[in-house]
Computed example of a mutant assay.
Amino acid sequence: MTQQHPKVDYITSIPIAKKKDKITALGWFLLIIPATTFGLGVWQVKRKIWKEQLIKELDKQLHMEPVDLPDDLSQLSQMEYRLVKLRGRFLHDKEMLMGPRSLIRPDGGETQGGLFSQRDSGNGYLVITPFQLADRDDIVLVNRGWISRKHTEKETRSLGQYQNEVELTAVVRQGETRPQFTPDHKDGQVYLYRDLNRMCKSSGAQPIFLDAVYDPKAPEGSPIGGQTRVTLRNDHLSYLVTWFSLSAATAYLWHRQIVRRIPF
């Protein structure tokens, strides 16, 4: 008896390649994220270059020849960091202190000092004194310079308390807004920052603030001038690193999810 085998049909199947999935409109829209963050990174590069150039220009102004104090004091609002010459006398009875501050030495170095430092050699205050201009009624504020903690009382530096008319060279400065987390001033004599409104109200001065330059001939115990800091924030390096990092991360995610369709 002949055994019959079931008939088997062999069908050869050739896989047909799938058509590559197209990127949807939503996928293209999401590309905006890495593109935008990259653009912001490029913008911060330009801002960094601009800020560094501005700081150089302001520092250059500190070494230019001084000009006479203008008759119209309002012009000083456009002259920050310019050197000016002025003549008059100090009103020591209305003297104020600002600090604590570290000392900027004549060579440009800076001592370590601050709110919690107790070292007299590096920690002290700036002496802010109203200055009556000669041949006019205007009074301006002059930062005469730095003193240590042990010289905060006027009697300890009597040789530097000029009573006669003097001529000064000083740097034009602007007022400051209250820095974040900075407490209020201790009293009407010690200030934590250049609060022109309160300083002028208590002294009767115009809202003009000048930093006296360093005077090597000043008597011993006098405030040490030359305490000008070019205070322009330059955080653009950290900003551009942040934006470029976000751009790289989001570009990688976009390529993985939208182009290659690789799930996490």
Results as ranks from 00 to 15, higher is better:
S77T: 12
W28S: 07
I11S: 06
H5R: 06
T37G: 01
S13C: 02
S77K: 15
K20D: 09
L40D: 12
D9L: 09
Q53T: 09
I11G: 01
L69A: 02
E80Y: 04
R47S: 03
K48C: 00
Q75M: 14
K7C: 01
G41Q: 05
T36V: 11
P15N: 10
E52I: 00
E57D: 15
D9G: 00
Q44I: 02
S74R: 13
L69C: 02
W50F: 05
I55D: 04
P70D: 14
D59K: 07
T24G: 15
W50E: 13
A25L: 13
E65Y: 08
M64T: 12
K20L: 02
P34V: 10
K7N: 07
L73E: 14
I33E: 09
L40K: 03
I23G: 07
L31E: 06
F38V: 04
W43P: 03
L40E: 12
E52Q: 08
W43M: 03
L54M: 11
Y81F: 08
K56N: 10
L31G: 01
K56A: 11
D21C: 00
S13R: 11
S74D: 15
G27S: 05
I11R: 15
Q44P: 02
D59L: 00
D21E: 15
L69Y: 07
I11E: 11
E80R: 08
W43N: 04
H63V: 07
I23S: 06
L62I: 08
L62A: 08
G41K: 00
M79F: 07
Q75D: 15
P70F: 14
G39Y: 06
G41Y: 03
R47G: 02
E65L: 13
F29G: 14
A35I: 09
K18W: 04
P6T: 13
K18A: 11
Q53K: 07
K60R: 01
Y10M: 06
L54N: 08
L58M: 08
G27A: 12
L62S: 05
